[in-house]
Design a binder for these strands. Structure first.
Lengths: 291, 291
DNA sequence: CATAATATCTGACTTTAGTCCGAGATATGA
DNA sequence: TCATATCTCGGACTAAAGTCAGATATTATG
């Protein structure tokens, strides 16, 4: 019964509940009760609707209202009725509120930095934390359209290229590949989708279109921390839906036999293997799907 | 600034505070306030002294006393003065208390099991959880003497042999090695030390003695999740102290060049490389240290 | 337009956690 | 032995979190 899986999970819970509170005490560092600090931070992160705040923090309507009033009395928050539906109210930070929010952020960053500077084997630890967080937070992973030239997208693509370099026997050099220009992956020609898990990008896929009835799926990548969560399938479903919304009737893609998970995914989701349709040196498998 | 280390840590904190509470709600599942449930569980885990409960849970003396009284009123706990020092009181579970404790345990196990059954890539996830938990809980790692024939010790030794098998080009077969019999690693001839991190064994070392002035350090192993925390050095310090307490004047050990971390440790902690002193087929480096 | 549903707010309330202090019993050391 | 320290306990208190039942304003619906 010793280090069986269940006792390992329970140990993780024990340690984490004991230590994470100590690790990030930023919510308690400025002489304000936890509840008020949480509301302030939710607003600072752009969650202004009173109802959303309630849902996000799991608060009773009365309690939420009173916490908001407290922040208003402190001069940190202003509320106004929603323009579309005057029953709702929207809260936003005043200048003083922004300063206070920034102070919380700085505290939290400082504490995370201090923890990191004490840790050994930082990269392995961060990878482990990413894996645990992605698994625990799998239910909150969102897929959203993004600009392929944005910071998150560029980071994902960089990781994707690096992984191809490791997995292809010949390595991988973007310059030798038929790299789609970003324009082709932006509406109205195409789209670029990012999977986000609590603020961390954990996957992407691009649709490279030309405005016609045919488009190509490119750059499907899942972060190592988020594999096994069914995210590849989800991204493919979403990119297909986006393709339909753009009037695309036929999808194509190319890939390499070294990417076994991807091959398996395509083969079980209605893709048909076809003949080579380009002269890119890297792919050796070609697929098509009618929408 | 994107997936920089600090934001990865903060994401981990966010996800874990949001999810771990939901993951293990066993302390709230039986209609008893958190504080009372925590005290009951501390007692169930053998932490009966009132003072120890206070220290472990970080409670004020008044609060602890009141929670205990509450559990007594429920008929779950009995207290009695300590035999050695009648100022102290010791609490123990009644039969009803044991049943209640078992119910909490069952709840917690069921929830951990349910989480596990939903997770993919279980082994990688558990390894990541171990690594995170060992790092976060590094301050609470204890080193204690244990029976080398106990379950924890046997598990550590099994992991140690498996690792040698992976790291030696020739593999490793215990039967071909000069395996010390457990008797030689038990007082008064020797000792066996276990490093425990929140209930999980994360390292071991043995001292094989014969009752004379010479003894041999064997089986130094650190769990992958606990490497980089300085635990090897700590175990060696403790085993040296134990050797001194047994009247040992000279320590020896053998090791293999494939175990680089161990070699580096010995070379920087006062060990002197000497000639081969046995005919074990696996070691190729031999060390000695005067105490 | 009347009615129902929705969103927020307020006031009154309870529960839980936590603090402070002194009392009483016991142990320790000059 | 006597002062002092230690340990637990209970009383009085506060703070924070959470609950519940209207009140009010707005929007949706037949």
């Amino acid at each position: 019964m010793l280090p069986d899986p269940v006792s390992r999970i329970r140990r993780f819970n024990r340690v984490v509940t004991a230590e994470v509170g100590a690790l990030d005490t930023s919510f308690l560092g400025r002489g304000r009760p936890l509840g008020a600090a949480r509301v302030l931070n939710a607003i600072g992160q752009g969650c202004g609707d009173v109802g959303k705040i309630r849902a996000r923090l799991g608060l009773d309507s009365g309690l939420a209202s009173r916490l908001l009033r407290g922040l208003e009395d402190e001069g940190l928050v202003e509320t106004a009725p929603d323009a579309d539906d005057a029953r709702r109210r929207v809260a936003r930070l005043t200048e003083a509120g922004k300063a206070e929010f920034a102070a919380y952020e700085a505290l939290s960053n400082a504490q995370a930095g201090a923890f990191l500077s004490r840790a050994a084997r930082t990269e392995a630890l961060l990878d482990a934390m990413d894996l645990v967080a992605s698994t625990l937070g799998r239910g909150r992973i969102t897929v959203e359209e993004a600009d392929p030239r944005g910071a998150e997208a560029r980071w994902c693509l960089g990781e994707y290229y690096a992984e191809l370099g490791r997995r292809f026997a010949s390595g991988f050099d973007v310059a030798r590949s038929r790299d789609p220009d970003a324009e082709a992956m932006v509406r109205p020609r195409g789209v670029f989708l990012l999977a986000m898990s609590d603020g961390l990008p954990v996957g992407c896929v691009g649709l490279k279109g030309s405005g016609g009835a045919m488009a190509e799926v490119k750059r499907l990548w899942i972060a190592p921390s988020a594999r096994g969560l069914g995210l590849g399938r989800r991204l493919m479903d979403e990119v297909e839906a986006a393709a339909r919304s753009l009037g695309v009737a036929t999808l194509r893609l190319d890939t390499n036999g070294a990417l076994g998970e991807a091959l398996a995914l395509y083969r079980t989701t209605g893709w048909r293997e076809i003949d080579r349709f380009n002269d890119d040196p890297y792919p050796d498998h070609f697929f098509e799907k009618q929408l």
